[in-house]
Computed example of a mutant assay.
Amino acid sequence: MSENRVLDRTYHVAVLMGGWANERPVSLMSGNGVADALEARGHRVTRIDMDRDVAARIAEAKPDVVFNALHGVPGEDGTVQGMLDLMGVPYTHSGLATSVIAIDKELTKQALVPHGIPMPGGRIVRSEDLYQADPLARPYVLKPVNEGSSVGVAIVTEESNYGNPIRRDAAGPWQEFDSLLAEPFIRGRELTTAVVGGEALGVTELVPKSGFYDFEAKYTDGMTDHICPADIPENIAALCKQYALEAHRVLGCRGTSRTDYRWDDEQGEDGLFVLETNTQPGMTPLSLVPEQARFAGMSYEDLVETIVKDALDYFAGAETGGEHGNG
């Protein structure tokens, strides 16, 4: 057993993973990595692949805490969080209210922009209307309102083969979702900052070897270069950390979060925009939070235990009437 462990004793942890969202394979990788790390630290682990009987399986297991390693709906949108709240079972990461807001890109804008956090403009559009006319001047971005990991994102340019206006038979998110968020395309660089234990760990630049940083580029080994720390000016790195911490606070995140940016380096500080804050960041070998944690001197096992400790401390405070957020 490690001598520099974060937790002062061992616990029974149920690791909730899998599910039926688009991100199921990623969640399984995250969950099994977390479970392996906890077992390496001597904890008792019950691995649970999310299904419709999940409440009964958690009740049967009687864990001290649930590590929520789900990505996407229903593990990231408040559904599982509400279920665990009703069951009275402590769990990692953000709570119901935060999860509902953070997975919805439009609600996130409404929460963050009034606090001075810059985000791209845009509006919700009906997919049916895209076949009549562009909602914004090209280039622009179309993305589902409540999916993560760049699932279903399309960049519509003058040169794209979607047609002008977009053709009904052109493959894209308009064929899968009734409505989409349309945002102006921000040229430049992809940056991200993780928050763990109330601290912004660093800034990573993501450089896809082709195309843009979509779902495939995120989770396919060798398709994206991670530059950690990012080779950017100190003032931009400081702003990334500031915005990540503020987003984490305003949204009421717990445990860990990851805030993603686009930065137009020709515009300096005015070119930095928050795209979203992820309340259930990946924990796979290619994931960004473990990578930044390593750079900050935190092992993967320490990271996992830190997230569990945050959950245990939060729920212990809630039971004794202590101060805690609404996440």
Rank of each mutant, 00 (worst) to 15 (best):
Leu84Ser: 03
Glu323Thr: 14
Tyr300Thr: 08
Arg187Ser: 15
Leu130Gly: 10
Tyr91Pro: 01
Ala21Cys: 01
Met83Gln: 08
Tyr162Met: 03
Glu319Lys: 14
Gly325Trp: 05
Ala111Gly: 08
Ile307Val: 15
Ser149Pro: 00
Asp225Leu: 07
Gly33Asp: 10
Leu181Pro: 10
Arg138His: 06
Ile232Lys: 02
Pro173Gln: 14
Ala171Met: 01
Arg126Phe: 01
Glu183Thr: 13
Glu147Tyr: 02
Leu239Val: 03
Asp270Asn: 07
His43Gly: 13
Leu38Thr: 08
Phe315Glu: 01
Tyr300Ile: 09
Cys253Pro: 11
Gly75Tyr: 03
Glu158Asp: 15
Phe273Asn: 13
Gly255Met: 04
Tyr314Asn: 13
Pro285Ala: 12
Pro285Lys: 11
Glu323Val: 07
Met50Asn: 01
Gly72Ala: 05
Ala237Leu: 00
Phe177Val: 05
Lys218Tyr: 01
Thr193Met: 10
Glu3Ile: 15
Ala194Lys: 09
Leu28Phe: 00
Leu272His: 07
Gly322Met: 05
Asp225Val: 10
Leu275Ile: 15
Arg167Pro: 00
Asp64Ala: 03
Ser99Gly: 11
Phe212Leu: 02
Glu276Val: 12
Ile101Met: 11
Asp134Ser: 12
Phe215Val: 02
Phe315Ile: 08
Asp64His: 02
Asn22Glu: 11
Arg138Glu: 09
Gly202Asn: 04
Ala97Arg: 05
Leu272Ala: 12
Ala247His: 04
Met223Leu: 11
Glu319Arg: 13
Val80Asn: 01
Thr204Gly: 07
Gly271Leu: 07
Thr320Asp: 10
Thr306Glu: 14
Ala111Arg: 13
Gln110Pro: 02
Asp265Arg: 02
Gln175Ala: 12
Gly33Glu: 10
Leu84Ala: 06
Leu7Ile: 13
Glu147Leu: 07
Ala311His: 04
Ala237Asn: 00
Gly197Ala: 11
Gly321Trp: 06
Glu76Ile: 01
Gln175His: 03
Leu38Trp: 08
Val308Trp: 11
Ala316Phe: 02
Asp104Asn: 15
Ser210Glu: 10
Asp260Pro: 08
Gly19Glu: 04
Asp225Met: 02
Asp85Thr: 04
Gly121Asp: 15
His248Asp: 07
Asn68Asp: 08
Leu201Met: 12
Asp178Lys: 06
Ala37Ile: 13
Glu176Tyr: 04
Gln292Ala: 07
Glu3Tyr: 08
Gly88Arg: 00
Thr284Val: 08
Ala37Glu: 10
Asp129Arg: 11
Gly121Ala: 15
Glu60Leu: 06
Ala14Glu: 01
Leu286Met: 07
Val250Trp: 07
Gln132Lys: 15
Ala171Phe: 00
Ala200Asn: 02
